[in-house]
């Protein structure tokens, strides 16, 4: 059997909000080390990769590896009922046909039980090569979300350029052009809620990406105050948000190239 209890149920809620618009159905692959999920969007342009380590749960039991296939939209509707301080327990039988989600309020005064039908999803896992990225930008997640939203007014593609001085996001369209530059900056009083902008630069990068997908990724903003954007010329970028201190959610996006 599989059973896992997550004291911070709102993490699961935020995860579902972050992926439900990008991926319809996905397998939660459960093993003794934790839960992982890997899924591409239907057009094979982006990929989401989630990791929740077993040690982040206050109870975790997985007798044998199982894949629990779920419709993420249906799951997100159920998980939206999780109260912010609720604990969530996920359970499944050994074949993953039926999945139970149980939400418990902090004082134990309310318990709700939900059952979802498991789906048989045929998905291949892609081998993601480990890459030493040329530029790694860490910045406030809310700022990244805002930049994606603001530049979408002008165009559908953003050129992200990193230099020693900072990072720029530029877009152009029929209406005109827009460019937002961020300089490296220190965090304000080491306040985790006001992170600065930092760039680890092996080599400058300039690469084009579809704003539509980046905007989907920013649905993960409530998960964490910071986001890390890793890039090398000519390969997919990675946008990573930590999931508490138990793992991460990574979004990969294939670049746009000159015709």
């Amino acid at each position: 059997m599989f059973e896992a209890r997550l004291p911070q149920g709102d993490l699961l809620k935020k995860i579902l909000e972050a992926v439900k618009d990008l991926v319809t159905d996905a397998n939660f692959d459960c093993s003794s080390t934790g839960i992982s999920l890997q899924a591409m969007d239907s057009s094979h342009v982006s990929l989401v990769s989630l990791l929740m380590r077993a040690d982040g749960f206050d109870h975790f039991r997985c007798d044998r590896n199982i894949s629990i296939g779920l419709n993420l939209l249906a799951m997100s509707k159920v998980v939206r009922c999780v109260g912010n301080n609720d604990a969530v327990t996920m359970k499944a039988d050994d074949n993953g046909d039926l999945v139970t989600l149980m939400f418990e309020s902090q004082d134990g005064s309310k318990v709700s039980d939900w059952q979802l039908r498991g789906l048989d999803i045929d998905s291949e896992r892609l081998g993601i090569p480990s890459t030493d990225y040329s530029s790694v930008v860490t910045m406030p997640s809310a700022e990244f979300a805002r930049i994606c939203r603001d530049l979408s007014v002008i165009g559908d593609t953003v050129v992200i350029t990193t230099t020693k001085e900072g990072v720029t996001f530029a877009s152009k369209g029929e209406l005109g052009t827009g460019k937002i530059a961020l300089r490296q900056s220190a965090a304000i009083d080491d306040d985790a809620d006001s992170p600065g902008v930092s760039i680890e630069l092996q080599e400058p990068v300039s690469q084009s990406f579809a704003l539509r997908y980046l905007s989907f990724f920013t649905k993960a903003t409530p998960l964490a105050p910071t986001v890390t954007i890793s890039m090398s010329n000519g390969v997919p970028l990675v946008v990573e948000y930590p999931v508490g201190d138990m793992g991460h959610i990574r979004f990969y996006l294939a670049p746009k190239v000159e015709d």
């Binding site: 057009s43 342009v45 892609l126 081998g127 084009s208 997919p236 294939a254 746009k256």
Partner: peptide, 14 residues
């Protein structure tokens, strides 16, 4: 504007 590439061409099947 450029053309969109796909992940299949970067990430191999294991």
């Amino acid at each position: 504007k450029g053309s969109q590439t796909h992940l299949d061409s970067f990430f191999g099947r294991p």
